[in-house]
Amino acid sequence: MDMWMKIALAVVLGIMVIRLWPAAMHMMKHGPEGSNEDWRAALLPIAAVVGFIILLILMVRGN
C-alpha cells in the first residue's frame, strides 16, 4: 500500500476513534450492567462461533 493511502486510511480510522470514544465511554459508565446469566447467554453463542471458525480453518488447511 502506498504511503499516501496508509496516511489517508490512518486519518479516517483516527476520525472513527474520535467519534466512537465518547459514545463508548458513555456506554461503559451509564449503560446497563449484565448479570452473570446475561453474560453466559452472550458468551455461549460467541464460543460456538469460535468453534465454528476453528472448524473452517481446519477445513481450509486440509486442502
Binding site: 500500500m1 496508509k6 486510511l9 490512518a10 480510522l13 483516527g14 472513527m16 476513534v17 466512537l20 470514544w21 459514545a23 463508548a24 465511554m25 456506554m27 461503559m28 459508565k29 449503560g31 446497563p32 450492567e33 449484565g34 446475561d38 453474560w39 447467554a41 452472550a42
Partner: peptide, 27 residues
C-alpha cells in the same frame, strides 16, 4: 428475545482498541 444492550460499552471500547491497533499496524 434477550436484551444484549449490556454488551454495548464493552463492544464499543473493544472496537476503539482494535481501530487504534489497526492504525499502528498500518505502519
Amino acid at each position: 428475545r434477550r436484551d444484549f444492550n449490556f454488551m454495548g460499552g464493552f463492544l464499543f471500547v473493544g472496537l476503539v482498541v482494535a481501530l487504534i491497533a489497526m492504525i499502528a499496524n498500518l505502519f
